[in-house]
Write a protein that binds this DNA or RNA. Structure first.
Lengths: 150, 150
DNA sequence: TATTGTTATACTCTATAACTATA
DNA sequence: TATAGTTATAGAGTATAACAATA
């Protein structure tokens, strides 16, 4: 989506939750892209890296589950990270159907530095809210996602 | 995106703004689809209808500008709304290059009823936050979008 | 038979380029 | 020459179906 809020949109749209959410997300995506550009990965790929680098090595399917993506999507994500030399696929010795995906040293290093950049970017992004409301905002997002009262 | 938050994701991802925003938006999109299903339009099309139905009739390009979409995208959106009998294209008499897009009676009626349903859906969606934090949340979204301090 | 990874494929969304008609 | 609408097309992003290897 390259259509950054060109139209002032009066304020008819500023009252639509869908519009607000979509465009705030798009704006964040832009800032994220800029912040991560030096690292050659996007926010999504960094999230994959973070999940894969979390404690013990996990399989592709397990990673896909945690990220909430399809396993075919996961193949493409790992493909790309592997091509960048950030992760390595190894056949699991316990269950040879599984790929265990582990971060390379380069991957570990990039993960640390890119995560720093991401955190800085997020803090700046939320700065207009002030510290207190920024916290409340993030907590609200978590609450909205967690609530499974359907 | 049909990948509703299947993976519990520990809470590694619950601290990533991008992940939270994306999935909250996806969840809202789901609720929105359900709420608007009886009307045969999605949230986006309803927003187009709302913009077009706002006071004086406007051209496609003007509508596209307000919505923040490309004019080629606008063609497809108006195509669909016209096929549904919700809007009508008329050649502008002042400038015959322009299409003036006006809501039909059916469109006006659907707009009113679907907007009610949307507002109810949004209120329910935000309910887990409580009234006060729900307000703050929406205000924060507006603030984040408005801030042009780049 | 079921599961994991993979490939091929299709579908959605949206933008770019080029065309038509008007200005 | 420039603008509004349109069409054709291409590029992301992601899902479904089918296949191979393994359990």
């Amino acid at each position: 989506m390259a259509e950054t809020g060109s139209g002032a949109a009066g304020d008819l749209l500023a009252h639509r939750l869908g519009y607000l959410l979509k465009h705030v997300q798009a704006k964040l995506a832009g800032e994220s892209a800029r912040a991560l550009e030096p690292f050659g990965v996007d926010g999504r790929e960094l999230a994959v890296l973070a999940v894969l680098g979390e404690s013990r090595p996990i399989s592709q399917l397990e990673g896909a589950g945690r990220l909430g993506v399809d396993r075919t999507t996961m193949v493409a994500l790992v493909d790309r990270l592997e091509r960048l030399g950030l992760v390595e696929r190894r056949r699991s010795e316990l269950d040879r159907r599984k790929n265990v995906v582990a971060l390379t040293e380069h991957g570990e290093d990039l993960l640390r530095r890119a995560e720093d950049a991401r955190r800085r970017m997020e803090r700046e992004f939320l700065a207009p809210l002030g510290a207190e409301d920024a916290d409340r905002f993030v907590r609200s997002l978590r609450l909205l996602l967690a609530d499974d009262s359907r």
